[in-house]
Every structure is written in structure tokens, then in C-alpha cells.
């Protein structure tokens, strides 16, 4: 039983990683990964929304008629996203300011709705929790890795702390949207290569 839960958890980390394997939730992935702080905050916020909505939906799935399943899911997700938005604005105003409109946009992140459809609406609550934690962590680690690469090459710093000295001429393109596409493409390619070699 515990082993099965661990399989659900591990699924999102690597084998079905939302970003590099399923390639969903691309909008925040490309938009907010210009600094590690933004990437990490986005990952945590998305994981929180994913976890709370998977818990609620897997618990109450039998009361939700099939015909209104999608609007019901969206309502529940939107509630948690609004909560997150207020919470960040009240207690982490700096992060809220730098992520600004990408927090409300978590509502339409297809990772969240996708997991409700594919997992939470078909499985018991404890398995949904394992799935949400795995997917959330899988989403977060890729965001952090991607933003670390972009911040280091684009600004010469990590978490706003200068790492590369003044000799380094920042590659401005890395903090622009084009840099997001380039680094994500290389990352996905690298992961696919590693996976093929593993088989």
C-alpha cells in the first residue's frame, strides 16, 4: 500500500514530469522562470493549488455529476487560486509584485485541471495527495532548474546574489522570452537523451 503511494508520488517527479514529459503548464514555465525566486515561488504556489484542489475533488468526486464536472473543478481551483493571490499579497508583497498576473493565471494552468481529470476524479483521496505532491514537486524542480540556468546566464546571479563576477557579460537574451524557449528546448532534449540511454 505504501509502496503504491510512492509509485504515485514518483510518477510526477520523472516518468510523467508535467513539464519535460507531458509538456503542460507551459505558460508559467516560460514566463516566470527569469529569476530563481520567481521560479520557486511559482512552483510552490502551483503545488499548493494542485494539492488542495486534488484533495477536495477526490473527496467529493461522487457528489459531482459528470455533466458539470469541468465547471465544478474550475470553481474549486479558482477558489484556491484566489486564496493564494490574497495570501501572497498580504504576507509576501514582493513576490506578489514580481509574479503579479501569473498568480491568478494558475486557474487556467492545464497541469491543475489535467490532474483533476486524469487522477483526482478517479482515485481515492490518499492517492490523490501522493499524486499532487509528486506532480507539484516535479513542476517545481524543473522551474527552479530552468530559472537557475536563465538567471545565471542572463544576469550572472542566483537568488539575486551575484555569482559570476564583473568579468561576465550577461547574455541578455536568456532573461527574455526567447531565452526561455532555448533553455527549455535544450532541457527537454537532454532529458529525452538521458531517458533513451537509460532504456
Amino acid at each position: 500500500m505504501l509502496k503504491k503511494l510512492f509509485v504515485d508520488f514518483k510518477n510526477g517527479l520523472w516518468r510523467e514530469n508535467p513539464i519535460i514529459v507531458l509538456v503542460i503548464g507551459m505558460c508559467p514555465t516560460l514566463a516566470v522562470t527569469n529569476t530563481v525566486e520567481n521560479g520557486l515561488a511559482m512552483g510552490i504556489a502551483t503545488s499548493f493549488v494542485l494539492l488542495s484542489s486534488e484533495i477536495v475533488i477526490s473527496t467529493f468526486k461522487n457528489y459531482i455529476p459528470n455533466n458539470v464536472r469541468i465547471p465544478s473543478f474550475i470553481l474549486i481551483i479558482a477558489t484556491f487560486v484566489t486564496f493564494t493571490d490574497y495570501f501572497l499579497k498580504a504576507f509576501f508583497p514582493d513576490i506578489a509584485a514580481s509574479l503579479s498576473l501569473f498568480i491568478p493565471l494558475i486557474v487556467v494552468n492545464c497541469l491543475i485541471l489535467g490532474r483533476q481529470e486524469a487522477f483526482a476524479s478517479k482515485n481515492p483521496t490518499h492517492r490523490a495527495i501522493a499524486d499532487a505532491l509528486g506532480m507539484g514537486l516535479g513542476f517545481t524542480w524543473v522551474l527552479v532548474l530552468l530559472s537557475a540556468v536563465r538567471e545565471l546566464l542572463g544576469m550572472g546571479s542566483i537568488f539575486g546574489i551575484e555569482i559570476l563576477g564583473s568579468w561576465y557579460q550577461p547574455m541578455v537574451i536568456m532573461v527574455l522570452p526567447a531565452g526561455a524557449f532555448i533553455s527549455l528546448g535544450i532541457l527537454v532534449g537532454l532529458m529525452n537523451y538521458l531517458k533513451r540511454r537509460g532504456n
Binding site: P65, V68, P71, S72, L75, I76, Y86, F87
Partner: peptide, 20 residues
Amino acid sequence: TLTVIGIISAIALSFVYQWT
């Protein structure tokens, strides 16, 4: 179903709003 979810979420959010 949708009405009940809407009401619950509105009540919950109004508390969060007051708090934050």
C-alpha cells in the same frame, strides 16, 4: 451542484478577504 460549490467558495473567500 454548481450553486452549492459557488456559495461555499464565496463564503470561504469572503473570510480570506477580510483576513488579508
